[in-house]
């Protein structure tokens, strides 16, 4: 097993052992989805109409919950220095952490989404589109989020500032993700929106390790 896989497995193990890992994000996701009908009423037509947007926003917020600890734990206990001196480049370290975060939050959220789509009276086609859009788009949430996490890793209250700097940058993900669902609901083709989402996601996963690594480097210099 190489260093990358070693770090990935260790982060997944840590996520599983600290407070149930995905369970927390999943519960939050389901809870938000439950509160929305309580707020807007039980009109099934309306719920189906807003499902794509609501579930996408809820998924992004759920993924944000665990993001602030992405680098912070390792920074505080000195592991980050040890990891930085390993044969692994910091860019690869960032990518491993993005992947670990996605596997422990983004992917479980995606897998849960068809169930929540049922609560929102979504048909099979839009529900499948939502599933696909989450599958394609949540890696971008982890990737862009990793930039924010690395920028705020030395802050005691970084969890408050992280959403402020990350959420505006994630607007395209929500727009294309929920847009694909809306298009399918209107009987149109969601492929174009999913393609745009995939392009954003690909770019984010490709580029954000560099920004995150630069930011980790600057924080180690303190």
């Amino acid at each position: 097993m190489n260093s990358f896989a070693t770090l990935l497995m260790r982060d997944l193990r840590l996520a599983a052992r600290s407070g149930g890992g995905a369970a927390l994000a999943l519960s939050f996701f389901a809870l938000v989805a439950t509160l929305v009908p309580l707020g807007v009423g039980a009109d099934l037509k309306l719920l189906a109409r807003v499902a794509g947007g609501v579930l996408w926003v809820a998924a992004v917020l759920s993924a944000l919950l665990s993001l602030d600890r992405l680098f912070q734990g390792d920074y505080e206990d000195g592991s980050l220095e040890v990891i930085a001196l390993s044969p692994l480049a910091l860019e690869a370290v960032a990518l491993a952490k993005i992947l670990a975060h996605w596997l422990s939050t983004g992917l479980p959220l995606t897998l849960l989404s068809p169930l929540l789509a049922l609560l929102f009276n979504l048909d099979v086609a839009p529900s499948l589109t939502l599933f696909l859009s989450l599958l394609i788009g949540t890696p971008a949430v982890s990737a862009v989020g990793a930039i924010g996490a690395s920028l705020t890793l030395s802050l005691k209250r970084g969890g408050l500032i992280l959403p402020l700097i990350i959420l505006p940058l994630l607007a395209p993900v929500v727009i294309f993700g929920a847009g694909a669902v809306a298009l399918v609901l209107d009987g149109m083709d969601g492929i174009g929106a999913l393609a745009l989402l995939a392009a954003f996601s690909f770019g984010a996963v490709l580029l954000s390790p560099f920004a995150a690594a630069a930011s980790v480097r600057l924080n180690l210099g303190g």
């Binding site: 840590l14 600290s18 206990d77 000195g78 592991s79 220095e81 040890v82 001196l85 044969p87």
Partner: peptide
């Protein structure tokens, strides 16, 4: 240079869960 270094810092770099 970092690839030649063994580091023992202020913090031990250990995870309580492992």
């Amino acid at each position: 240079r970092g690839k030649s270094i063994g580091w023992l810092g202020h913090h031990d770099g250990l995870k309580p869960q492992l």
